[in-house]
Nucleic acid binder design. Structure first.
Lengths: 243, 243
DNA sequence: CGAGGGGTTGACGCCGATCAAAGCTGGTGG
DNA sequence: CCACCAGCTTTGATCGGCGTCAACCCCTCG
């Protein structure tokens, strides 16, 4: 457990050990919140707990791995890569979200590439384990349905907020999302790099840079420390409304 | 049943009568495909069958109706309207799809406005009926999960294909989608009006018109009869690749 | 100290939004 | 049956926003 504070910069995930779901302190957030603690005693395959450094690939689109992941900490981006090399980020997920759920609905392989944005802490759940639990506890189905519905809502929001309107408005919407869903105790959030932001809203890197720089000059966006930022949500909403 | 061929132009739905799920000839496509025929004998509330003329509103975002709908025939658009009056279409659904599923996952109201694009034929399922069946037949859960996953995949495709790249490429992608998912026996599909297409890909009506007109001149898109069209998929894919 | 990667800024040209006007088409009523 | 109208589509002209290329800055790391 002393490893928890380490963060080596390598592309391999760090194995933190077996997950102890029955005494997981964030289980109510998580995928298995419906289950009794006793459910985990008879699992055929273990659920493991890993830590991934920023930028590491959790899984690749099309690969046929057999794991679902539950995010405990950090941000994960789901990326769609076109054969021509350009890529578009279709979702940004944080603690409590589960990824790779398409495997449960019969997909032969992952539909996206999943990449850690910052340091990510997650539980790796064998597909067969979920299926086993699903048979024993039908209530787990509701949890899966809820996860899917939440991701569907996020995808719709992505279309409406991040893929519509002028570049300035999209950047403003993105900042509001970071502020709302990814801010910590002191209401500050990590400002993603320009490339990621560009891939989220579908504009050029330079355009994002210009908008962010302008927001900084206007004091609508300001640094707290390191790359933690705060924003003036009211001003951003005004920009989204009035253009 | 003689009413089936009628199509009065009014905003009210035409009631066709009780659905007979146990002998529905497209049930394997539908929401209740997992259930035995006997499941429908003890329903507390009826499942009704309606026909809606083009343009009629099936339900409005935010309203708290208590029905889920299964599409039997026709196309339905899910629309997000901004307070400023502009709107964006986030999904286009056809036979076999179910809409209003967010009610099952605890949403207090519909997340979108649903509007019939052409003549739509659907089953109106009371929320309580689905919940009742879900208790009796946990397998229904899988079906719901599958529906949600399919819609999530559609939403992701919407982001990647219809909200990314130049206007010409987006229109090409849209035509490919219409060709793939909404074409009938003779491989022809209904060409949506320019306003709807514009709301799908997030560009101006005039721009869509220019692109469509250009495709017609290039013989990549050609009318079969009325407003049924065919397209040259290979040429469209080339445009998407090369710009 | 130099190299390299990410961020910022400038210059320029093109795509697409906007406004305006002119076809087209189906429906209505005389 | 034809004239007319309303709504949709097409096309043109113009202008601004944004993509592209390039230079430069700043910070980190070797």
């Amino acid at each position: 457990m002393t490893r928890e504070t380490e963060q080596s910069i390598c592309t391999d995930a760090e194995w933190l050990g077996r997950s102890h779901c029955e005494r997981c302190h964030i289980r109510r957030l998580m995928f298995f919140s419906e289950l009794p603690g006793s459910a985990f005693s008879s699992l055929l395959k273990p659920i493991d707990h890993y830590i991934h450094p920023p930028g590491s690939v959790l899984y690749e689109a099309g690969s046929d791995k057999q794991f679902i992941y539950a995010i405990r900490r950090g941000m994960v981006k789901l990326v769609h890569e076109t054969p021509e090399g350009s890529c578009r980020i279709v979702r940004l997920l944080g603690p409590g979200a589960a990824i790779g759920l398409e495997l449960l609905e019969g997909a032969a392989s992952y539909h996206h590439t999943a990449i850690a944005v910052d340091q990510v802490d997650l539980c790796k759940i064998p597909l067969s384990t979920t299926q086993q639990l699903q048979l024993e506890y039908p209530a787990l189905c509701n949890r899966i349905g809820k996860q899917l519905q939440e991701q569907l809502d996020l995808a719709d929001q992505w279309i409406v907020a991040l893929s519509t309107g002028a570049a300035k408005q999209r950047v403003a919407q993105l900042l509001l999302i970071l502020d709302e869903f990814f801010s910590d105790d002191n209401d500050s959030f990590i400002l993603l790099n320009r490339e990621d932001m560009a891939a989220m809203i579908g504009v050029a890197v330079e355009t994002v840079s210009r908008m962010i720089a302008e927001f900084k000059r206007m004091k609508i966006l300001y640094r707290l420390k390191d790359n933690r930022f705060q924003c003036n949500a009211t001003a951003l909403m005004k920009i989204i409304r009035d253009g």
